[in-house]
Amino acid sequence: MHLNDPAIIQFLKWLGGLLTGDLGRSYSNNMPVADLIGRRLVNTLELGLVTAIVSVPLSLALGIAAAINQGTVYDRVVSTLTVGFISVPEFLIATAAQLIFAVYLKWLPALSLAADINSIGDLLRIYTMPVITLILVNSAQMIRMTRAAVIETLHTPYVEMALLKGASRGRMVFRHAVPNTLGPIFNAIALSLSYLLGGVIIVESIFNYPGIAKLMVDAVATRDLPLIQSCAMIFCIGYLVLVTVADIVAILSNPRLR
């Protein structure tokens, strides 16, 4: 412990430890940071993964459908709802979900306690609310960006050319427009999943979900620097991985860059 050193020295020492695989020790309970993080990181990844698996296909489908039916009632409903969801803070959606499912309907518990999982039913009950909240927040962003990207491509001369070749609307969209929107769409996905990182922070602390974000928020309350630094680093790495994957996909989908 170097609690008496200036902050910058402490940070440098922590960085030095990082190189040898040592994340340091928590100030508040003197446990190795790596031990504190381990299981909780897995919990958070599970949460993120489940959200991504549901929200990515869902938003692509809804976004593309809105683009094809631009200007129809369906499009307007989707657009209005998504504006609503991206305009309110995550915690409002989370509290609204709690209010509806836990308070009024009493279907689900207000808090997630991963400790006592005994059946698939328990599992569902624990994950459902955090996942629903994250999906709502996340999909709204992705649907908007997907819709914008597809609409832009639908106005290009090569899609008009496909129409003049006699292609059906479906063919114009899926054979001509969508392949050219893969780059922007994957960018949208990466961006949305990085918002997911922010959403996770709120959702975990509202539902008391034992993940790494909750750990970090608690660490901030106690000013436990080694723990905060390690958690922050993990989040940044997660973001960089997402952005890099999106860039690679964009390059692969464009013959000019390949």
Partner: peptide
Amino acid sequence: SIPSKLFGLV
């Protein structure tokens, strides 16, 4: 490239 909530917290 730093998530905004994280930046704020830190």
